[in-house]
Design a protein around this nucleic acid. Sequence first.
DNA 1: TGGCCTCACTTTTACACTAG
DNA 2: CTAGTGTAAAAGTGAGGCCA
Length: 763
Amino acid sequence: NIISILNIRIIYDTINIKKFLKMTLIELIWTITPALILIAIAFPSFRLLYLLDEVTSPTVTIKVTGHIGLKFIINNLKHFLIKRIYKINTFLYLQSYANIEKSHIVKKLIVKNLSKNRHNALNLYHNNLLLSKSSHSIFIRNPMTIRVPNRISDKFLPLSSTNFTTFKNFHTRCRAINRIGPHNIDVISILVGLLLGDGYLNNRSGEGARMAIKQSIAHKEYLFNLYEFFYNRGYCTSLPPRLYIRNIKGKEKNYYGFEFNTFTFRSLVWLHKLFYKNGKKVIPSNISELLTPLALAVWIMTNGYIKENSNTNLGIISRSSTLQIYSVFNSIESNNILINVLKKNFYINSYLFKDKKGTYIINIDPNSIESTFNLIKPFIFPSAYAKLGLTFPLLEYNNPEIEKSLIYKENSNKSGIYRWINKITGNTYIGSSSNLRLRFYSYFSIHWMTKKVETSNSLIYSSLLKHGYSNFKLEILEFCDKQELASREQFYLDYFKSSYNILNLAYSSLGYIHSQESKIKIKDAMQNWLSKGENLELVRNNILKLNLEKGIKVEVLDTYTNITTHYDSIRQAATFLNCHLKTLLEKEKLSSKNKSSNNSKTQFIFRGKYFIKILRASNSTFYPTDDIYTEYKTLIENKSLKEEFNGQNTNLEISENLLSKDGILKDQDQKEKREYDYLERRSIEVLGLDQIASPGELELEKAKQKYKDAFGKKIMVKNIITGSSKEYNSISEASKELKMDRKTIRNYISSKKIFKNIYSFSL
DNA sequence: TGGCCTCACTTTTACACTAG
DNA sequence: CTAGTGTAAAAGTGAGGCCA
């Protein structure tokens, strides 16, 4: 720069040093131009450099790896995700919970859309997303708590809280440095929640960071739930949490607990950087961004406790007067940040408090307890209820017969969840009502129940009538808002696994099975309806129309005449070609086996003349055809392939798991297959005719020759008696006219015998 | 290769039914 | 009242067995 300035001075100083002028200009250009070029190059590079940087707040990232043989499965998966991703985006967008009004409007729109029909409702299950009806915002609910209709079966649920064996680890046998890429918001939320509590993010220099979680044996269930969350997402090994024994110095007593840690992820280092300074846990500056309702729920589950002061009868959540969160930060400043964030993010009022040991405790203001619990309710593990100091039931009546008037009095004008317990058999029934008092009126009316039992097969009514009220115990589990009844009832249905409840899904008749009499009644009515000619015609026409769509389309090009014909099914094409449909299918199989190019999979030359294209559903669409399934199954069963995968068979397994839920059916449970197809078959896409290339001339020549060699054997039949002879184009042609078997003619040709002393054959 | 066969499955419709 | 269940019929598809 100094030189440049000097140069500029020289330019101005033209009078004194004229001789240098020209050279200086050139030198100036030499100096400045490369600099400008470098700046021009640098700017786009900045963008690239930033793109290379780790993403800390991703929406969603999915990476699928697999053997080359599983290419088609991965393609299916990709297209499936692309199709659905807009939905996921819509939901994730809604986590702008601070903007209550906005999310409320979007929520309304989505609810409207989703309740259109049952397919959408089921798609909701597929996507593992659930709307929280009570709160002002929509969050992704912890998939573990989602119930799935039992008829659809758990295979549609990517994450099941009960089935541990279905899931494998997809991060095993992988260096931490390779475990890159962003994490989903729920994972980050849980990690943040744990970090605010007892969780320890262990930084392993050069490798990455891992979360280590410990809980005393009293909170074993809670720890296992956490483990399940991470395990189901491939964040830790299949080995369950370990038991540890700890001895505190100076004390004789041993302390037992369970611990586990996640795999080490390089992509978690940023979280470590945020939460740790000089090896000490600190509150990150962007805690407001990180503290989602899920994170708050985990924080409260880990370090929260409900201090019960009085029974306020408001419901199990708010019956206690204070909710305390034990803080792991020991400075007033840090804890004040947390208090401010609670206020800013969720409008939760809280204040700081120091106990005798010097530990800081954040006390949630009694006025904010209800809103706090409404916010975190969807994310709370059932196991955490006891840990938090919450107990049910709220109210209990050991002898409903005597306490009838008390039941009416205490439940007047209240909505909530109740439970009947048979003291003899131990069976339970869970119900909900928007007006509990009114509901109990019917329970205490023998007349009403008798009437109900006659018309329906309600187990609870008949049991109450049979055993009498004194043999039952009535519990009020929770008082809650009318809009929340369904979700809360579902929670208790899952928790208690009630035996009197015929249906397992609250506010739904999914899973109901008709009685034999009902079936007969339906059958008779149906037969009666179909006996009318017009109705039968209606059904028939619909089927014809549907089959037309369903058939595999075939295009036949006669290469001699250059005429192309289209058929709606293979059978139709086979009829036209005067061959069996099996022939075409065999040809197709063969052509896909010896395929020379990608295009030749569903096309082949037939009889050296016809170029046939069979237009099956494209592999790249989401819906896997049976073919793909069989192909896939053979792949899985193929021993050599398994051996090949022996070292790193995780990809294979995860593909299997993923697809068993969203695409391919593993077993042949027809009922389920039917339901599955019903939902998904609509998404079939068929390749356009122009998407398959025509045969090359060389290819066609070869096929013609091959056909001639194989089928063009002309046969001469000579009548010895008359001396006349006739030429036939093929053995079968001759056999038809002479009423002989093809094989017989073949025998006579090779043995040179004379048939019935009349005919001699020669090729 | 192909004739002949079976088997399982597809779809829609209106209606009957029922737990909650 | 809601949202699920089951029922019959039809014609065609596709897989595959047996036999010649």
